[in-house]
Amino acid sequence: MTEFFASQRLSAYIDGELSAAEMAEVERALRENAELRAEYERLSATVDFLREHGPVRAPSGFHDRVMASVEHEPAPGGLLARIRGWFAAMPVETFAVALAAVLVAVVVSQKLDDPSETAPTTGEELADRSRSEDKGAVPAPGNADGDLGSAVSTEDQDAVQSTKGNTKEAPAWAEEMAGVLLPDDQPQKRVSSIVEPSSEDGVVTLEVDDEPAPELSAATKDMPDTEIDDGSTNQQLQAAASYRLRVDDPQDLRSLLMLIERYDGTATSNGKAVDEDALVEGASRVGVSILIPQGNLPAFHKALKQLGPVDMTSQNSAAPLYGSDSAVKVFVDVTQ
């Protein structure tokens, strides 16, 4: 073993992470090389210093503050837990890769100051809109076979292709989800999405507030087409993950925008770059198109799930969630 390799292995040697043969080699090098020994001592001292002075204690009262912060959270085992349980069963990983891009409609509900638009408040009305938008769908980008690139598995390509016709049907679970999101008999039910890291299986997180929200009829109406299609050069849509995400906390929106930026994506609203401050300070309801370069998409999607604003994706990868009776619509945007 050369001195260079011995040097590179010093940390692992300190941690006992080398094989017996490698350890013997490092020890021999240490005996023969004073400079290497000095480096070893320096590293060991640094590790000891970190172990001695690194750990810290939480501030006084921290525990109480945490408990106070969850005091008004729904108790586990209640309605929220059941809803989460439904989504926990979804194999989102499979479907995630099928996404050529993610279009997210963000509903910021700080103010609702646009009463002029008619709002569908039932699943049927939403389905009508969804079907009318379906007719305007263009073929999925990529080659003639719908190849969306290396990020998409064969299985998922099949899934995308399966959506090319206008005969898409929402899977049963989607209807169930639509019922959760926009129960026809309880149109005032307030639905919010919350930002939090997902568990290892990347679960959709939804939260249904127990308090009625009178403004929901406005907040939950479909995004006008102009808000969804930003008119950019990116090819538009066919199946995959679009969902309406309600962001009640400005920090959540900031987090989302930061994530987009990190993965070289863009966030536009009505064809213009999203003005974060304007959104969080004055917006009532905004559709945001998110475009992520294809190569970054899997990583983005993974990070998105960890960050919190999560997509609603199909548990059946062969049948991406689509309009029909679902309140959740499906689009794909692909940057070229």
């Binding site: 921290f62 912060s69 939090e196 890291p197 568990s199 299986d201 679960v203 939260e207």
Partner: peptide
Amino acid sequence: AEEVAQDVFLALYKALPRFRGDA
């Protein structure tokens, strides 16, 4: 750090019900 740590515990509170124990 305290703010973030509190956020972490709030997130854990919400996410623990679906923690399956795989890790």
